[in-house]
Design a protein around this nucleic acid. Sequence first.
DNA 1: TGTATAGTTCGATACTAGTCGAATAGATTG
DNA 2: CAATCTATTCGACTAGTATCGAACTATACA
Lengths: 232, 232
Amino acid sequence: MTVPNLVEVASLIGDESRAAMLLCLLGGKALPASELARAAHVTPQTASSHLAKMVAGGLLVHESYGRHRYYRLASIEVGLALEALNAVASPKPIRSLRESEESRALRFARTCYDHLAGEVGVALTDKMGELGLVRSQGRDFVVTLNGTQWFREFGIDVEDLGRSRRHFARQCLDWSERRHHMAGALGAALTNRLIELKWVERVPVGRAVRITPSGLMGFKGELGIRFSISGR
Amino acid sequence: MTVPNLVEVASLIGDESRAAMLLCLLGGKALPASELARAAHVTPQTASSHLAKMVAGGLLVHESYGRHRYYRLASIEVGLALEALNAVASPKPIRSLRESEESRALRFARTCYDHLAGEVGVALTDKMGELGLVRSQGRDFVVTLNGTQWFREFGIDVEDLGRSRRHFARQCLDWSERRHHMAGALGAALTNRLIELKWVERVPVGRAVRITPSGLMGFKGELGIRFSISGR
DNA sequence: TGTATAGTTCGATACTAGTCGAATAGATTG
DNA sequence: CAATCTATTCGACTAGTATCGAACTATACA
C-alpha cells in the first residue's frame, strides 16, 4: 500500500502546536509568525520550525511584507481537511457547564474559512430560509426572486456571484451546532458585507467573531433575529 | 486555543502503519487484525497496538466473530476525513511513467467508501449524464424520468432510495481524476448492483476493484462504455 | 549609522512513541 | 484434552522529533 504524502499531512496536523496555528489561520486571515507563536504558546524559534515544515508540506504559504512574514492556509482544501478532522474528533457536542469563555465565543460566532458559522451563522441561514430569501436544494441553497432583491438591497449582487467558478451557496455542516449554515461564494460575500457594515467584527486572533451593537440592531431590524448577549 | 481531540485524530492518521490500515478499510469492508497487519507490513503485536489506539480514538470499531476480530471504519466521517487529507496531500496527479501496478489499479477503479471511483467511476457517471439518465444540479445529481426507468430495469428502485435520510446522489470529487463521480445513496446502490451482477468485483485486500469479463461486455452493451484492458 | 525588532538557523536535550520478542488469553479442531 | 491459530499484553530498545538557548540575518526607524 504505497500511499502518497497523506501520512505527512496528517502528522503535520497531528501536533498540538501546529494544530493551534492552523486553527488560528482557519479564519482565512494571514497572520505573522510571531502571532502564531503566541497562539501556540511556543517560542519564536519553535514556531519558525513548525511553520517551515507546514510550508514544505503544502499546508501553508507565506508572503513577506517588510520584516514581517505572513502565513496563511495554502488552499481551501486545507481548511476542508481541518473541518473534516474536527467532525471526526467531535461527535459529542456536550455543553459542559464549565466550558471556557474562548470556546463559548467560538461556538457563538466564528468564521469557517471565509464564511460565518456557529450559532450566528446557523440562525442567519435559518432566518433567510424562513423569510423565503433562500431555499434548500440538495447540498446547496438557491436564492429566490425575493431573495435576489433582498440581497441587492443589502449590497450583494447575486448575479455577479453566480458567474464565479466557485460553488455558489453550498450547505456547510459545522461541528458545534449540528445544522447547516451558508458557505460558498454567497456565504463569503454575506460575511464580507456584514464586516463592511460593521455588524460583526473579527477579534484580533483566532476564528471567533463578535457582533457589534449596531449589528445587534441591524439583525433585529432587517431580519428579526434577536441575539441574547452578543455572545458573552 | 483549547482544541478538542483534533490533534489526537490527526496524529493517529499521521503514522505510516496506521494510515495503511485505514486506507485498506476505506473500501468499506471490515477486515481481521491479521490482514491489516500484513497490509501495514508490521507484526501482529504492533498492529494490535495500533488498532487499539484507533478504536480508542474513535476511528475504528470492531466486532468479534469467533477468534477473529473484524475492524472497520467507525463512521462515514472518518472516510470523509481521509479523502479530505488525501486531497491536500495530492494536488498533483502527475502520471509518472514508472508508477506501481498497485496505484494504476487504484486509479483505474476503486471504491470511495461505498461507491465507485477512479476512471471507471467517472466514466460511468459521465455516460449516465450523456445518455440523459441523470443531470447535474449544484452539488448533486438528479435522476431524469428516463433515468428512473433505466435504473428500474437495472434493478434499482430510485423512489425507495429517495426515502433514505442519506444524501441521494451527491457529486464526489476524487483525487486521481479531477472530475466528479456519483456518490450518495444512488452511488452506493449502483455499486452494490454492479457487484451483484458480477460486472465488477472487489480484490481481496485494499480499495481497488476489477472489471470482470462479463462486466466488460455489460458496460459496452448496456451503456456503450468501452474499457481498454480492464485496468491492467 | 547604530539600535531595536521580526524571523530564522544551529546545536543540545529530553521525551514520546513505534517496533518487536516473549509470554498470555480465548477459540477452534481433531 | 492437546494442538493450533488469532489476537492481545508486557517489557525493552530505539529512532524520531518537539523544544528552547544562543547566535545570526534582515528590515525598520531615528
